[in-house]
Nucleic acid binder design. Structure first.
Lengths: 154, 154
DNA sequence: CGCTTGCTTGGAGTGCACTCCAGCGTTCTA
DNA sequence: TAGAACGCTGGAGTGCACTCCAAGCAAGCG
């Protein structure tokens, strides 16, 4: 085996705050596998993110190995959040491009964030709707128990 | 072109309640394209759902064409809800199998629903977390406007 | 009767987001 | 200074959820 790649037991149900043990700014260099451990992503995915333009340029050691910084970790934390809103990776790349192209893209980024905010809000609303449906079904099953199948449930 | 397949303009942002014009029970037979229009799914997807076992057995006309009922529409509405919780199709198939195999699967279905409810709850929590992050960023951009890039934002 | 429109099937294709591989170089630990 | 563990690359492969295709049957209409 050439590469171990986090035999992922961590990201079970909760995906709790992975920002545990960061190094202080100034002494913040992490190898790819450290970042993998900290973010829950695989090293594969980190390299892939870079290839598709989702990451800023990552520092390299004198031999060409990636050295991540706290800033990169912050960016990955944001990406992680956006990812679980269901935002397509292509849109995140778009945002990354805006950041890279400088300060004159502020308003565009602002609009993008506001739009995303709206999307998240409506997704939450959808989920609460679904929750209501589930609760109705659950209480039906709770009532019915194994009573005669007078009204068959699906 | 042999099949028109809903040139999807409907499912834009909101995906509002598609349960508009149902026929009264007893006179409830719908063709596949009617169901497509009512649910926002394509006819392709409806046939695919059937193939993979996500649908109960659908009635057929004397020539073999599918005739959906209100009950089928109800089922599709539930599937739609579950789908947008991010539940994998395979899990929904599992639930469909439980329904098909009869009343003795009540408790298992009950457990599955409760688990799903938990999943939805934690997804909502995640999204609210993300919302907080977005709000912080948005207010940063709102404050910063095009002020000097003292603290560069990502 | 021919034409259009709609529905049927099995199987192949698509897009997304990873995920892995082979073959090689580097870094750490004993 | 071995040897194991880790990291590098380009490109190929995977799994999911559709999405489409080709060829054919069936109903309604002028």
């Amino acid at each position: 085996m050439t590469e171990t790649e986090t035999t992922d037991t961590s990201a079970g149900t909760c995906a709790g705050p992975p920002q545990g043990n960061r190094r202080p700014d100034g002494a913040d260099t992490y190898t790819i596998s450290e970042v993998a451990a900290l973010t829950g992503l695989t090293a594969h995915t980190l390299r892939w993110y870079e290839r598709i333009g989702l990451m800023p340029h990552i520092d390299r050691s004198h031999t060409g190995q990636r050295r991540y910084s706290n800033r990169d970790l912050d960016w990955l934390a944001l990406v992680g959040k956006l990812r679980l809103t269901g935002m397509p990776v292509a849109d995140m790349v778009r945002y990354a491009e805006l950041v890279r192209s400088g300060d004159h893209t502020y308003t565009e980024r602002f609009e993008l964030l506001k739009q995303t905010r709206e999307d998240v809000l409506s997704r939450i609303a959808e989920l609460q709707d679904t929750l209501a449906v589930l609760d109705r079904k659950i209480s039906f099953y709770a009532d019915a128990g194994r009573a005669p199948a007078s009204e068959r449930a699906r």
